[in-house]
């Protein structure tokens, strides 16, 4: 199982941001995306997840394999932690949330309403959702925002377990996760110049 990206160009709001991105990710590998704010990491991850179309280039092996997690966790504040996780498990056709609850130490919070959790606890719940999807490719956008050091270690361990089980991970982050084996991909080398692909656009209506 391979995720291969060939000569991918992506745009945000009609302006090309990244050009000519190519890489290959095999089972058990992780890749860290680096780059300053606004360099196009989020746009690239959303393109890989299929939420927007690329300007050009090809993505192979991504369809129906990606579990996407971004800045907002998709949690319902009026549902309990357990109900939130169970909902996503059912949507993704997976059974059981106990492994996810254990990995992110959510036992004590199971019956709390998600709306009453702290920002870090919500984030842990959002990341636990990745485990219940049973999807092989994790595409994560700033997964460690508002996590404390212990929770970051918890997350890194979950990623390592996922990789050991033959999964893949693509992570945009600014901090050091302690994933020694991960490749680092710096998007700044692919940033679109001011007149690159002039006239190209991803807008649906013009």
């Amino acid at each position: 199982m391979t995720l291969s990206v060939k000569d991918l160009s992506v745009a945000r709001g009609g302006v090309p941001v990244l050009i000519g991105v190519s890489f290959e990710l095999r089972a058990g590998q992780a890749m860290i995306l680096r780059g300053p704010n606004g360099s196009g990491k989020t746009t690239m991850l959303r393109t890989l997840a299929g939420l927007q179309l690329p300007l050009s280039g090809e993505v192979h092996g991504a369809e129906d394999k990606i579990a996407y997690a971004a800045h907002s966790d998709g949690l319902k504040s009026m549902l309990t932690v357990e109900e939130n996780l169970t909902f996503w498990a059912e949507v993704f056709g997976a059974a059981g949330i106990s492994a996810a609850v254990e990995a992110f130490e959510l036992h004590d919070l199971r019956d709390r309403l998600a709306g009453t959790l702290s920002a870090g606890q919500k984030r842990r719940l959002g990341l636990a959702r990745l485990l219940v999807t049973r999807r092989p490719i994790w595409v994560l956008d700033e997964p460690t925002v508002s996590l404390d050091a212990k929770a970051v270690e918890m997350f890194a361990q979950a990623v390592r377990d996922h990789l050991t089980a033959g999964g893949m991970a693509l992570i945009a982050t600014h901090i050091e996760l302690g994933l020694a084996e991960a490749q680092v991909f710096d998007v700044t080398t692919h940033r679109a110049g001011p007149d690159a692909l002039a006239g190209a656009s991803d807008e649906a209506f013009l």
Partner: peptide, 16 residues
């Protein structure tokens, strides 16, 4: 409401 909390993004990437 689903748009604000990101549920729609996640639903769009789900098997449904």
């Amino acid at each position: 409401l689903d748009w604000e909390d990101g549920t729609l993004d996640l639903l769009a990437t789900s098997p449904l």
